[in-house]
Design a binder for these strands. Structure first.
Lengths: 146, 146
DNA sequence: GCAGTTACTTGAGGTTGTCAAGCATTGAGG
DNA sequence: CCTCAATGCTTGACAACCTCAAGTAACTGC
């Protein structure tokens, strides 16, 4: 709203814009998740479970305490989207895997998110390519484990 | 991780990348907020209060129920960062305004967020200008009130 | 002045987040 | 083999947020 010509203002404006788009993307995600009667975290978990994974891995991926995953898995399991299974060789580990219903839900969710993304609706193919290059550069830096 | 050459894959990859950067920005925000002993929502509220505003306006800005703001304001007020004040002409309205401490905190918070932003650290000035143009285009579309 | 709306608060109920403690299992060393 | 530390998951306590419904006070329109 108040762009400046100084270098400091430039940096601030870019950051503000990124925050705005981030907010929008986040809200878009929440809205789509709500459409499927999912909380954001439940949706995140579903998306992460494209292939089965130990609960520990999911906790790492979501950057939260393992005890948190117990509850999220409980709620998804009670609705039949996810199942706990043992893993051969280590009886401590519980693998989380999508059920048939869970897989269907996950695909629909993923598609809906892509469709509703502001970037998809506002930018053309060439612009997206440019954006992709910049985002990749910003995304790679340091924080890319998993 | 698995870029494709199809148009559909292209769209999906771009959306995934945007989600990744969004995640990163969000995490960055949470981490910085935690540095100041603030929850993400408390930090958001502080940033929104650059100038005093009625609680209702804050609720609209944060897209949440008004009752939610009561609690957030309570916690910020109990720590001396915010104060409730009456507004002339309408005794229903409570204006939220930053205290001196709150203003100091807000500036420090804002600066820290900009500094730590992945976009600031990974992209140079020219790249940021390109990014800004693309983000602006994505941000403007339809959802720009407030 | 009366009815309806608006601003804020309060309380109930659910999800998420942390931390500390507990249980079972695994793995490494003596 | 046995002990002991580390690991994976669960549970319980507690705080923050979130929504909805209900309540109070104050404004607005008629």
């Amino acid at each position: 709203m108040t762009p400046r010509s100084t270098a400091l203002g430039e940096a601030r404006d870019t950051a503000a814009l990124l925050m705005a788009v981030t907010e929008r993307t986040r809200r878009n995600f929440e809205d789509v998740a709500a459409t499927f009667d999912l909380t954001p975290q439940q949706a995140r978990a579903l998306l992460a479970l494209e292939s089965a994974a130990p609960m520990r891995a999911l906790a790492d991926h979501m950057h939260c305490d393992a005890s948190n995953i117990t509850g999220i898995a409980d709620r998804l399991e009670s609705r039949g989207f996810v199942a706990r299974a043992a893993r051969d060789g280590d009886r401590r580990v519980k693998m989380l895997a999508l059920t048939a219903d869970g897989k269907k839900l996950r695909s629909a969710l993923e598609a809906a998110i892509v469709d509703a993304s502001p970037v998809m609706t506002a930018l053309d193919s060439k612009e997206r390519a440019t954006l992709r290059a910049l985002l990749a550069k910003a995304a790679i830096t340091e924080g890319s484990r998993t």
